[in-house]
Design a protein around this nucleic acid. Sequence first.
DNA 1: CGCCCGGTTGAAGCTCTTCAACTAGTGTGG
DNA 2: CCACACTAGTTGAAGAGCTTCAACCGGGCG
Lengths: 234, 234
Amino acid sequence: MMSDQVASLIDLFVFKHQRVLEGLPQPTLHVIDSCSNRRRFQNGDLIFKQGDSPKGVFILKSGLVKIVYTSPAGQRTLVYIYKPGDWFGYRQALTMDNNQISAIAIEKVEVDFISNDDFIKLIEEHPKFSHNLLVTLSHEFTIWVKRLSLFTRLSVKTRLAICLLILHERFKSLGQEPTVILFSRPDLADFIGVTIESTVRALSEFKAQGLVAVRGRSIRIKDTQALYDSIGEV
Amino acid sequence: MMSDQVASLIDLFVFKHQRVLEGLPQPTLHVIDSCSNRRRFQNGDLIFKQGDSPKGVFILKSGLVKIVYTSPAGQRTLVYIYKPGDWFGYRQALTMDNNQISAIAIEKVEVDFISNDDFIKLIEEHPKFSHNLLVTLSHEFTIWVKRLSLFTRLSVKTRLAICLLILHERFKSLGQEPTVILFSRPDLADFIGVTIESTVRALSEFKAQGLVAVRGRSIRIKDTQALYDSIGEV
DNA sequence: CGCCCGGTTGAAGCTCTTCAACTAGTGTGG
DNA sequence: CCACACTAGTTGAAGAGCTTCAACCGGGCG
């Protein structure tokens, strides 16, 4: 169970991709279905790579996908975590610029893949689909503004707490009970935007306060509300 | 004159809104023209306010517009600066969520205003326009990723330098010679995401190094390439 | 005239990073 | 199968960088 407070905090930072298929006419759904084909990846597999040309669009069916940006200086940023139901890769398919980011599988991943050509055809021939995408992309803007302000002037502890709550919600969708966050320290550090050491220290504090249980790279939040309460006003 | 290096750095952080009107058929351009009406604002005027319901879409004709987000805890973030040719407010018009941000005029501002209803009609009846908006929004994603990584783990001096170069490009479009950045310290601090004092100190260093000339809130970059060179690899 | 806000500077302190060392897993090749 | 190499995880100590608090100047406005 997740409290309203926690749920609405998370809402500030995650995309609402249910909207992509919302209210689509049956023929459109059928076309989407018929032009997509299933692909599978193992934990750690590269789904697409920064610098490559975009191949098409992915609809995540099971598992999680992390999006990573590496700056010219080699600085890694973990930009986003997709969960089942989310669409990704469609921005590159639209602009046809080379990928600015890499997509990497977390756990076993299944996706439905739609090629660039099919996707563009979908947009051109199905106005309601195109409109849904516009609304979805617009909503994502709001998320980025919040994310930016999260990264700015919030303490490492606060950022870690928020990131853990987001990860909890993401990993929850994998369906295991109890929900366990399986995430390496380097990934966690790149997600909250600090060094590994700072991440470890902040995590140890949460451990000492009894807010989380840690064993290796598996992190379990004992009480989401208590973790939320430790944040203070954002 | 701006060097290629400086120009391509700035390209990483600014939207390309020329694409919105690119290749539109004459009738579409005509409809856009006929449903928009001119509005004027003075320096500091609120064009729309965080929390209000969206009224419509704005096409910036002259002056600059700053987009500000204020967190529940009162933390301000200067999210973006629009320049002539840019469109803004269309994301809210699409989602119809209340504004998450405020838009404030810098200098004398002229905009063309299109009401929500007219805008939605435009999208529904002009597929090429709708497609252009999709591409434009997709491109903006790239900008946000870069912006996020800029805010993460770069020093205040580096962030200030980049922000000054961005502001220089924005203010340049106002057409004054020489290009002068008219920007208060609090705004500058909210833009780079640090305290006012840190901003002032970093700016003083640039002043001491002869990279910028400062008089009150007017900042002139003496040599954009030299300022760029002071950054090091990003 | 006094007040408030913007701009600036100094000093103190805290937060986060850096560097270094050590332990614990994990996979590879002899 | 074990030696080893490599990465992940953890902790400590030192120090850089940024914030906070405080004080001061100056200009615009009621």
